[in-house]
Write a protein that binds this DNA or RNA. Structure first.
Lengths: 165, 165
DNA sequence: CATTTGCGTTTTCTTTTGCAACTGAATAAT
DNA sequence: ATTATTCAGTTGCAAAAGAAAACGCAAATG
């Protein structure tokens, strides 16, 4: 994701894309329903019928997406102990770790005019709203696109500019 | 996106979903190609052919997606002053504001085993890697799902627990 | 002026989606 | 115990979306 107007632009991008971790992630949750199911799960939805009624999704699609999310280890299927025909779709740790992604998108959406929600997320401890999610330097400064560049891990560890290979 | 196991679960969710800003955002960039185009743009890709060659996307789909991103004001079309047949697809401020979303997903993906990239993003100023994107309380503490709850804006402003209406 | 390049659109074919009805097991009601 | 209902899917078919290649057109290039 860089920001250098590199010379061999396309090839450099293609080269980088080969090991970019984004495509598999996009494959998993970069899809309308998968993402909305994830939002539902973060909101506490757990059962097939809850997702179905809550999202208004077709049953076959829901079935398919839940299966993919389970295969991707974002959700976990467990039989409901209280009712043998129910299945609980619970978030795994990996699934919960998507919270920043969902919230970042939500905040962006709110900030850029896709409608304001009537509720805000607050820190349970003191009831104060959470911060806006942003890109930060090691010392906490907020960074924008222009403040960033790519580096090879070794160079970054050495913690100086570092010329690319 | 909450975290309270509410009683009237589904209805509460549906109610909240009505004003949730996420669906429109998902409609715009919650799609494989749209998201990968966005990544490309953040990486400095600008022209139709660059996206096409860089992503290996079908031309008609690319044309459609670029159109949607422009309509959604994430990209901006401007004729290239150096070459009249070229069009520059540049990020708008709204588009650039998606950086945290893309990076959060990227970091998640890297962290959860979808492949490590060979380059890392660093602060141009000192060459040190950026922080992991996370949800933070007002004081900077990192928050997880369990630390969060929904509140109405007024209550949050008052900055104490706040009983729901 | 002929050719190539950039940016699409059109066309054709394949895949995915959406909807409704159906199955089959586990509970709940009578 | 029998019947009915709920949950979690599956199946079949029409409609929409996707991929690949061909076509069009304006701007540059030789």
């Amino acid at each position: 994701m860089a920001l250098e107007r590199v010379t061999s632009h396309i090839d450099a991008f293609k080269e980088a894309a080969l090991t970019c971790p984004l495509p598999p992630a996009v494959e998993l949750i970069g899809e309308k329903w998968a993402f909305l199911i994830l939002r539902g799960a973060l909101n506490g939805l757990q059962h097939f019928e809850e997702f179905q009624a809550g999202l208004g999704i077709a049953r076959n699609i829901l079935s398919d997406r839940l299966g993919r999310l389970v295969a991707g280890e974002i959700l976990e299927r467990t039989p409901d102990p209280d009712d043998g025909r129910r299945v609980i779709y619970g978030l795994t740790a990996k699934g919960e770790a998507l919270l920043p992604v969902v919230l970042a998108l939500r905040q962006w959406s709110e900030e850029w005019g896709h409608g304001k929600a009537r509720v805000v997320l607050v820190d349970r401890r003191d009831g104060r709203p959470i911060r806006r999610i942003c890109v930060q330097a090691e010392d906490g400064r907020e960074l924008t696109l222009d403040d960033l560049m790519w580096a090879k891990p070794e160079d970054a560890a050495a913690a100086r500019q570092g010329q690319a290979a």
